[in-house]
Amino acid sequence: MTSAENRCSFCGKPAVARLTGPERRLCAAHFIEDAEARVFAAMKDECMVAPGDRVAVGLSGGKDSTALLLLLHPILPTLGATLVAVTVDEGIAGYREETLKAAEALTAELGVEHVIVTFADLFGKDLDRLLVGREAQGCTVCGVLRRRALAEGVKRVGATKLATGHNLDDEAQSVLMNVLRGDLPRLRQDTSTGQPGHFVPRIKPLAVLSEKEIVTYLLLRGYFRDLPECPYAGTALRSEVRTMLAGLEHRHPGTMLRIIRFRDGVRRSARSVEPVKALSTCRRCGELTSGEVCQVCRLLGQGG
């Protein structure tokens, strides 16, 4: 296709993207409108937010959470809900400083209340110190502690929902990783309902947008920043799955969406057959766990 033929399906201006389902070419303005409309529709279809909700956005300052805050900022008031941003500072030298600054600048620009919780404050050490001698486990350790830190941040701000910036790629990768690990319980786990007294419901409004669509959205709105990559990234199974899935998505467009539909189908059918295992409380910290001691306490060496 020549540049002259590459025109928006709606207004005839030069197109910035070609999307499928339905097939369409979109100019910058229509791409932004399309992305926002899809997120809004998903939020309404899945009843993610109710009037009176106080929604905490998990804001790392990276691309996904930046897009999430930009998208939710105008949408939430129309749904009768309010917005607050929570940032977890894990303490990753050479990485977190810059994203933290980006998060602070964005919340200041939008006038959104912003709370920062740190690993050092919650767990006594920052991530770099917690990982000494076990750097290869970086993503696993960080994932467990970050979930706890976010939950703590949500409690501090009194939020009723937690919105995270997981995109379509993230979600499809997680499904494949659970399949490759043979982890059916995690594949079935649905965090959108929450756990009264422990976790507020989690919502993922960006799960209808691919990573590429999110970056396009940020570039078009002038918010894309080439931030450093986490030094612990690439040590996990996720990076292998990510490469594999990107290849499949290119050769077989729609693969990621079909994987999500498969997961939803598994959840629906599994729910009617076998109840999810009941959770107990950790005997060290009192948080929810499937065993006697939760993962956080075990990682912090407080399992005894």
Binding site: A28, D64, S239
Partner: peptide, 28 residues
């Protein structure tokens, strides 16, 4: 980004065009 404008990859680039390739790293 072709000549300063984001374009879909099925567009044909011709002599004299400048293509900037933006890779997005994970995280965020």
């Amino acid at each position: 980004i072709m000549n300063g404008r984001i374009v879909p990859e099925d567009v044909t680039a011709t002599e004299g065009d400048e293509l900037r390739i933006v890779r997005f790293s994970h995280g965020g």
